[in-house]
């Protein structure tokens, strides 16, 4: 039983890392109805910028601030050069644009900072804690704490502030949002900048875990099942979806894996996501289309 709980909680904590990435997608999806394929590249860009600054002797918070500003500038460039040109186009056009964007951002990051792997040490040692007889990774607990704080912050931003209400209005009905005087372009800029901030946090935590390298941008693929399970439009959904993916893939690997030769972890989330698509296509927390009959 103890072993089961250990695997389970370990999976939940690892799932938090998926959630962090998925939140970035949710933000942009809510504001513009677009699955932003470039989110993974933004995570890489942020992590690479941050780690390179730290390696050049800039202290943690200084590097954090500079990277944050860089991400805001990146968001502004994307808004002016890409989104503004494609306004009113179909979602698939915008999706293709973000696909292209992901290669540009990725290439830009590596052109500026090089392609080698960087180690990132943020001063959390990874000795396990023992809680009620269960061993827990200290780093995972730290990551979970950060993610929790981030969710609380974003929850406040979206539910209580005028920007948040405007954002949800745009998600519901773009034309009506325009008609009441909401400035779409300003809102997009804010959302992409916030997604850049979330990407930075995710990039630092993932970078500290697996090293800052090109493959960071591939976590976009891990976020997909998280989003399908949790729902594309919900930050809570991204959290719960991440937890489900994290816990279930670890449990599947440990308990089902040996029966069929292992290696389940990598594809199990997709099977789960597919089941969700059949039963609950808008995910656990996604917005159901409200329709009166």
């Amino acid at each position: 039983m103890n072993f089961f709980l250990e695997v389970f909680t370990g999976g939940l904590l690892a799932g938090v890392m998926y959630s962090l990435v998925a939140i970035g997608f949710v933000l942009i999806y809510k504001a513009s109805g677009v699955f932003n394929f470039a989110q993974g590249s933004m995570v890489l860009f942020a992590a690479l910028t941050f780690v390179s600054l730290v390696e050049r002797g800039i202290p943690f918070w200084g590097a954090f601030a500079i990277t944050l500003i860089t991400m805001a500038v990146l968001a502004w460039l994307i808004e002016v050069l890409v989104l503004r040109q494609l306004v009113n186009r179909s979602p698939i056009t915008l999706f293709m644009a973000t696909l292209g964007l992901s290669y540009i951002v990725e290439g830009l990051a590596q052109a500026v900072w090089g392609a080698q792997v960087h180690a990132l040490d943020i001063g959390i040692n990874d000795e396990p804690y023992e809680v009620f007889g269960i061993l827990l990774s200290q780093f995972d607990l730290f990551a979970a704490g950060i993610a929790g704080g981030l969710v609380a912050l974003l929850g406040f931003l979206f539910n209580k502030t005028r920007i948040g209400i405007s954002l949800r209005a745009v998600a519901d009905d773009q034309l009506a949002a325009l008609a009441v005087g909401i400035k779409l372009q300003r809102l997009w800029l804010i959302v992409w900048a916030v997604a850049g901030f979330v990407g930075l946090v995710a990039g630092i935590l993932w970078g500290a875990r697996v090293g800052v390298q090109f493959s960071l941008s591939l976590i976009v693929l891990k976020a997909l099942p998280v989003l399908i399970i949790g729902g594309f439009t919900s930050i809570e959904g991204a959290i719960v979806g991440g937890l489900i993916v994290g816990a279930s893939e670890k449990l599947a690997e440990v308990f089902i894996g040996p029966l069929i030769g292992g290696g389940i972890e990598n594809w199990f989330p997709y099977v789960l996501a597919m089941l969700f698509l059949l039963v609950r296509p808008y995910g656990l927390f996604g917005d159901k289309a409200i329709e009166r009959v």
Partner: peptide, 14 residues
């Protein structure tokens, strides 16, 4: 063209 997922009051506020 109401914002369906927003409350009536949030709609007005926008």
């Amino acid at each position: 063209h109401c914002f369906g997922h927003l409350t009536v009051e949030e709609n007005l506020l926008t």
